[in-house]
């Protein structure tokens, strides 16, 4: 149940580790005229599984449903 972003938790600064920005210095002339690549959805596929696996490594619990809230580990 929720009505707004106060109840729907997205990570806040305190949750997020250091982020390293890697610039890929290579034009892609095929996708668009700017030569830029879109990276919106591609990273989404792997990272939830990676986090779930990291949490599995830390806790011994493999949770297959998001979000990975504390209640699921008890």
């Amino acid at each position: 149940m929720g009505f707004d972003l106060a109840g729907y938790h997205v990570p806040v600064k305190a949750d997020v580790p250091d982020i390293h920005v890697v610039l890929i210095d290579k034009r892609d002339p095929i996708v668009n005229r700017m030569g830029a690549k879109g990276m919106g959805e591609i990273p989404l596929v792997g990272f939830t599984a990676a986090i779930a696996n990291a949490v599995f490594h830390a806790t011994g619990e493999l949770i297959r449903e998001l979000p990975l809230t504390p209640d699921k580990f008890l």
């Binding site: 938790h9 806040v12 305190a14 949750d15 979000p67 504390p70």
Partner: peptide
């Protein structure tokens, strides 16, 4: 103990 590290009510 809460669902995220700040700005959340306690579980």
């Amino acid at each position: 103990i809460r669902d995220r590290a700040s700005y959340a009510f306690a579980l």
